[in-house]
Design a protein around this nucleic acid. Structure first.
Lengths: 121, 121
DNA sequence: CAGCATCCGAGAAGATACTG
DNA sequence: CAGTATCTTCTCGGATGCTG
């Protein structure tokens, strides 16, 4: 029994879901998806918003998401280039599942970063 | 506005939530947590269940989760060693948020793996 | 402004052998 | 059974420079 998972095939080393899961849970992947969930953003906006990301990693992340069908790239041929990235429907689906996780991490980071976690209450 | 996140501090490069998030979304981290959510498992059971994991990575993952307070290690001093790992309450919290994500990945892996959604190279 | 190519170091990750 | 120790390989990811 896998108890909630469709089949529990992620536990197989060669299951394709492993790769997909790895991409959306990658260091910059989650942040890109979460950043885009409120609406389309431009390249430079993403770069500023996601603290610490390099151009290389942002580009790599966006391109793989684009190939995966999670992110849509809208490049307009104006003379200062204008490119916007947005979530596809699939992108919104996965991001919706990502947000509670990120929220949890933000809430619990304070506990684990300090020393004592005294449970009272 | 962060739209749903507590503060959206994950976007700051030095936010402690980054590290925590990185651990629970790590390649083997998600699988360990999800595997444990149905109940305690022994070392060897985890090793078999999680296809492709090495002893080293399983040990490392388990130990960091233990330090993080997500996993509980119960070692009984019997002569063939018997050690069980289980989720703490915090572990169950985060795993509950992880499962929908894994389920999504399993469902979508089939589409993205072989499907002909690739225009033409 | 929006990207890509290249080089390079650090750490992740794997295989295997060994131990209590 | 449940790990640890060690060695090697490989990927991630940062810095930089170039292009349209």
């Amino acid at each position: 029994m896998t108890g909630g998972l469709p089949k529990g095939e992620v536990f197989s080393a060669d299951c394709p879901s492993r790769r997909l899961l790895g991409e959306v849970t990658s260091k910059w992947g989650v942040l890109v998806l979460v950043a885009l969930r409120e609406g389309p953003l431009r390249w430079s906006e993403l770069l500023r918003r996601i603290g610490g990301v390099s151009e290389k990693m942002l580009a790599r992340t966006l391109r793989s998401f684009e190939a995966e069908g999670l992110v849509l790239r809208d490049a307009r041929p104006v003379v200062p280039p204008h490119v916007e990235y947005s979530l596809t429907e699939a992108g919104h689906e996965v991001t919706a599942r990502l947000v509670p996780l990120v929220a949890w991490a933000e809430e619990h980071a304070v506990r684990t970063s300090g020393a004592g976690d005294r449970a009272h209450g």
